[in-house]
Design a protein around this nucleic acid. Sequence first.
DNA 1: GGGGCGATTCTTTTT
DNA 2: GAATCGCCCC
Length: 727
Amino acid sequence: MSKRNLNHIQKAAVESFGRPVLIFAGAGSGKTRVLTHKIAHLIENNLVPAEHILAVTFTNKAAQEMRERVNGLLKEKHAQVNMGTFHSICARILRKEIHHLGYTPDFSIFDVKDQIALVKVVIEAMDIPKNYVTPQEVRHKISYFKNKLIHPDEVKRKAHLVIEKTYAAIYKNYQKALKENNAVDFDDLLLLPLEIFETHPEVLEKYRQFWGYILVDEYQDTNKPQFMLVKYLAQEHQQICVVGDDDQSIYGWRGADIRNILNFEKNFGNCEVFKLEKNYRSTGHILEAAATVVKNNENRAPKDLIPHNGAGEKLGLIETNDEMEEADAVINALEKEIKLQKRNFSDFAILYRTNSQSRALEDSFRRSGIPYNIVGGVRFYERKEIKDLIGYLSLIVNPKDTISLRRVINFPPRGIGIKTVDKCVIQAEADKKEMIDVLNAPESMGIRGKQADSLTAFYNIIKKYNELLPKLNAGELVRTLIEETGIKKFYKESSGPEDAERFDNVMEFLKSVDDFMVREPEGGLSQFLEEVSLLTDLDQWNDETNRVTLMTLHAAKGLEFPVVFITGLEDGLFPMYSALETKDKLEEERRLFYVGLTRAMHKVYLMYANHRRRIGSDDLYGMVSRFVHEVPEEKLEKISFTSALTRKVVGGKPGRHTKTAVSRTVVAFDDFQVGDFVEHAIFGIGKVMALSGQGENQRVGIVFKDGLKKKLVVKFANLKKVDTPEG
DNA sequence: GGGGCGATTCTTTTT
DNA sequence: GAATCGCCCC
């Protein structure tokens, strides 16, 4: 392995061994390079065998990339390093160890929707006044408690208000219900291993010895359970290296505690600290702007980013009237970049604060024919049709999973409604049986006729596939399952246009099962389900194709792009209103802005709209974001934009299904080319013959239809671009 | 008792 | 704009 392309601090961090290592890695300072070289260094110098190294990353995709890069650095073949997110590593631990807590290894992993469904069931069984609490808010509370490592009993002890006591009671029952379903939620994936480590020291000892060296990336975004896991595993051998940047901590709302990194030296005494401050990514103006902004935060470790590249271009600032115009302005600037700087589509990232902002952007991209990729939003595996299928599979693997059972018992519709399900619940309680097992005897619950037949048929399918599980490979199983359950028939016979698309998604799911089987020939269905439930949209994002990337600022963490647009910079949206309540929240929003700025290599565009329509809440007539004002004015270049498109409503009444006709008319500066046809209010149609000047000073030489030649300043001429000489 | 259709509600960010 | 809720009809 060559270390020639490391600077001396990076090299020292790579070679440090024998003491805990803390690396403060500023944005773009070569953090991933240090981590991969460090892993390669450990292996190559026989300091730690590859299979005894554990590397924790923030996303599965990052783990995959890190694996490839480590493999690229090492010439000799070596065992695989254990890499993954906290959640995926913990899931693997649980498959082996969860029996210590009385679950079976086939446990289901509940996502947010499953959690809400379970909370609902729990509340309904509890004699709580209707609408006193919503399942969503309770789920949120429970997750909050879990991320702070607060047990139900402690919540109960500290509860004063009736509502707090209610939360405590639901939390306790919810946890009990999870276990009865042989299911864990996302938070449990972290909590249950901790519980095992605390109650079974011999298990902890086993993992301590196995993972002789631990590396944690994005350490600033670890929460309390994650910190405890690291502490348990590493505090004895102290063979640990964490990397992070307190300025990029953006997951406080999920329990991430910035103190984990700021107090690392206290928790792991005798540690060696390295600061990577040289930025290899961004040009000077961008870097200085970002640094000035983040210095407004009080709660941060003082540090600098030293520019390595030239000053580059100033940050573009573009004001528009509304979100549609903002989207057009993005396209406009993007096309200019492509024309003038010869960039590819994949050089651009469009970032926003909330997923719903992607809609207007998406419309414009589609209309202009520019290929794009949206990362996030509704994930593939959260679509209804896919969740239904996963529901079947979860139930087959884990028949105790009543949430999946409820989900699929009447899909496709087979005449089993809520009342019938209720009868089954009561019967199961009375008989002390699993819910699945009472379905077999409908007569004993007073269910007859169509419902009775449906119940037995449903029971037989689940039972049959449960028994087939060891014999059939996952792909075959799913294929026959969609036939036998009638899912295929249901979609094929449906005339709804969205059902055709749903069936396509089912087919794509089938393909992902096949892919999994090729990748993991030994892997069973439950391993596939685990992988699927921990996969995020970002993990599947393919950055090789030539497309513009649209994503939230959160999702952009750890990535870099030549050109970055940060949209929706309005007070109330970014920063959000709710973040104005406390200093900590505002500082986290500011860090998010900092993360956005530092994604860019060459150019940043800051965008805001004077009026933004939002679904589900009032329109925002926002002021320019305070963050824009925090960027030094001399770093900004205002780019004026007049809509290149006029929208007019065509056909039908205005309202829900209003169609908008879009025509290209008014243009921004710098958007003329020789040969373009234009229309002037007085002189009429003309043809552009010459160009001079730039931006506000741009002039165009035009020959009008009657032979009149004019040289006009674009700013004042109010020209419209037209497609043909006829207008 | 189930199914269909209109009314209502949701909103930050995600492993 | 979509997903859930609740009402009403079969």
